[in-house]
């Protein structure tokens, strides 16, 4: 039962992108088409599940002082694996994602889950946590991609929607920021809670440093 909860929390309630505000770069960059959003989401899910499993298996072996480099190397290893797989089997997606496939390595969702969950929990819950968070990320990317593709190029998953007039600004970078801003505002409205004042990087390994920078600002 509790394992099931570890899985479902990431989908909506603690959605890493829309509630946790993590992993903004890929969310903005690859969502010009819904298909790319799904592809990026699933690639990230794969890396997240694998790295969570390995890190939770190695949690007693990795020394505390060098844990960040260790996590990054584990994650980068799986990123290399998935980019090989995509290059071989789905070359279209591979070229659409471009550099952002390699940049999964520094996606703060993955490092954040390693730091917050996998290094403290057993293998099965860690795996489910990674799966849930990854699918939540995929869901958010799919939503963003759908809105931008429908509004910007008047098509959806490759289906032409001739009754919509395409507004190309939505597929440009400005549209990305705009759509994400509106979606997060909606999520705040629906959740009915106070909007987060600060970026939710609590899971990020650098949160402490970041917080000290912000303290200077205030």
């Amino acid at each position: 039962m509790s394992n099931f909860k570890e899985f479902t929390k990431g989908l909506i309630k603690e959605n890493p992108t829309l509630v946790g505000l993590l992993g903004m770069c890929p969310t903005l960059a690859v969502t010009t088409q819904a298909v790319n959003g799904i592809g990026m989401g699933l690639a990230t899910t794969f890396v997240l599940v694998c790295s969570n499993i390995v890190i939770s298996l190695l949690k007693n072996i990795i020394p505390k002082t060098v844990k960040l480099p260790c996590y990054i190397v584990i994650i980068a290893g799986f990123v290399t694996l998935i980019s090989f797989l995509l290059h071989g089997f789905i070359p279209d997606l591979y070229s659409a994602l471009g550099t952002f496939l390699n940049l999964i390595t520094v996606n703060c969702i993955i490092l954040g889950r390693a730091e917050m969950f996998a290094c403290k929990n057993k293998v099965i819950p860690s795996m489910l946590d990674g799966l849930g968070m990854g699918l939540g990320f995929t869901l958010a990317l799919f939503l963003m991609g759908s809105i931008r593709e429908i509004m910007g190029s008047a098509s959806w998953m490759g289906i032409k929607l001739s009754f919509i007039h395409p507004t190309s600004v939505f597929v440009m970078s400005a549209g990305g920021f705009f759509v994400l801003g509106i979606i997060i505002a909606l999520v705040n409205k629906i959740a009915g809670k106070k909007p987060p004042k600060k970026i939710g990087c609590a899971g990020c390994p650098n949160a402490a440093n970041c917080a000290s920078v912000r303290k200077d600002e205030e």
Binding site: S173, A174, G181, A185, K194
Partner: peptide
Amino acid sequence: ATFKGIPSTLIAASIVS
């Protein structure tokens, strides 16, 4: 209130972009 914080920041970023 709904737009306070991150949403308004993102929309401002969109205009700068």
